[in-house]
Amino acid sequence: MSIPRAAQALLLIGGLFAVVAASGAAEVGVTPWPTTAEQIRKGKIDVGKKYGMGTDQRFHRIHESTLGLECAACHADRIPASARTFSVPPAVDVSQASPGPVDRRVCQGCHVGGPARDVYGSQRPSEVKQR
């Protein structure tokens, strides 16, 4: 299931474009994401210390409140078969995961050698600075 390098590049660009377009963060006057990410890392922007996926917790405070991503930037009603990550067994009610499952290709836009910490890139776990 490997994808050709050219397709990977398109995927990354497409993912990033989708996120930026949905968030409106590319508008004039908005702090660029790399700067924001750096400020978060340095503690200049308070995103809380409560690690979790709740909307009041750090993950969504970074991605939604601080970076301005809208729900639809990550969550989708439908994920195309080509992007399937084989993630949800039939016994799980995904409708509870409102507002929909996440297409993780979107994450790659920033988390592969981008402004955000490297999650899917070449950096090994031991090379990533732990909190």
């Binding site: 439908r78 078969a81 039939p90 016994a91 799980v92 009610d93 409708s95 509870q96």
Partner: peptide
């Protein structure tokens, strides 16, 4: 293949 669909869909899934 790329056109394959899961036989059992997760509850609430639309894709």
């Amino acid at each position: 293949g790329t056109g394959a669909r899961e036989i059992e869909q997760p509850k609430g899934a639309t894709a």
